[in-house]
């Protein structure tokens, strides 16, 4: 009997720990929604900032972040997925594969600010892109590459070997097999993992700090060599650099809310796709 009550107590303790974390998360989200909602308006979403962000909206920052996300996707998705296909379908045990795995592992551990340093050195200065969308996107792409590779590879591995063998046995070439019998089943899973990675990139500040972000740039960019404003950096600036930080607090919350909605929409989409796919394909 004693151990029973001890068990109940410990379960309650664990429950308390878990709920505490959940409540903190909920509180952060709630706090930002509560304070951010009143600011959200058509004007806020579609106008340029005025008076260093104290008035007006955040359109250039929204557009900037979306462009960065698109740029990152354009660079990282094909590269990451192709790498995953190589690892899952072509790679044999050997020095090259081992090196590749080590490289991906290393890349996954590089802190985001070090990517910023690297992007500054390689894209901004050495390749002379200047602080620009392309420099920022490529930096972010390097950062999310390992996530995309690892999750895509997992999705590819999830496709049963028998599908490949069947196709090969019927005389299809390797590429035909991959294209017709592996990719169609793996693509949803590959997309999900990749989207999760890219969602993270959208919220990152450190890598874009040195490679693309502008403090104030009301116009929209004309080319990929322009600087842009970005939501995370705009929030950082509003929260820490504005002369009357308290006065622009509503704008900070509004920006935080928009950024959070953007990132979470991306994540939620990925999570939803995944759970639907899990139900659809069960081997």
């Amino acid at each position: 009997m004693r151990s029973r009550s001890a068990q109940t107590m410990i379960y309650w303790l664990m429950r308390a720990f878990t709920y505490f974390v959940l409540i903190v998360i909920a509180y952060i989200i709630f706090d930002i929604i509560r304070n951010g909602m009143p600011v959200l308006s058509w004007e806020f979403l579609t106008e340029s900032p005025r008076k260093s962000g104290a008035e007006g909206g955040i359109l250039p920052a929204i557009v900037g972040t979306l462009l960065l996300v698109l740029g990152t996707m354009a660079a990282a998705l094909p590269l990451g997925m192709a790498s995953a296909i190589y690892l899952s379908e072509y790679a044999k045990r050997g020095r090259f594969t081992e090196m590749l795995r080590l490289a991906i592992l290393t890349l996954a551990g590089v802190p985001s600010i070090v990517f910023g340093l690297f992007g500054l050195g390689l894209f901004v200065l050495f390749l002379n892109f200047g602080a620009s969308i392309i420099a920022g996107s490529l930096t972010l792409a390097c950062m999310v590459l390992p996530t995309i590779i690892v999750s895509s590879e997992e999705a590819l591995q999830g496709v049963p070997q028998s599908l490949r063998e069947g196709s090969l046995a019927l005389g299809a070439t390797k590429w035909e097999t991959i294209r017709k019998n592996v990719l169609p089943y793996a693509i949803p899973g590959m997309m999900t993992g990749s989207i999760l990675g890219i969602g993270r990139a959208a919220g990152e500040t450190a890598p874009i700090l040195l490679t693309v972000a502008a403090f104030y740039l009301p116009g929209l960019p004309d080319s990929i060599f322009d600087q842009v404003m970005a939501l995370p950096y705009h929030l950082y600036v509003l929260a820490t650099q504005h002369p009357s930080a308290d006065l622009v607090r509503p704008m900070q919350y509004g920006t935080a809310l928009v950024l959070m909605i953007l990132v979470m929409t991306v994540n939620l989409a990925a999570v939803l796709i995944r759970s639907r796919m899990r139900k659809k394909y069960r081997w």
Binding site: K51, S52, A214, F215, Y216, L217, P218, G219, Q227
Partner: peptide
């Protein structure tokens, strides 16, 4: 950025970015 804002209001087509 206050300068830039006013300057751009006066001069259509000019763009100033501030970091």
């Amino acid at each position: 950025s206050s300068w830039a804002e006013a300057f751009m209001n006066h001069n259509e087509g000019m763009e100033v970015s501030v970091t």
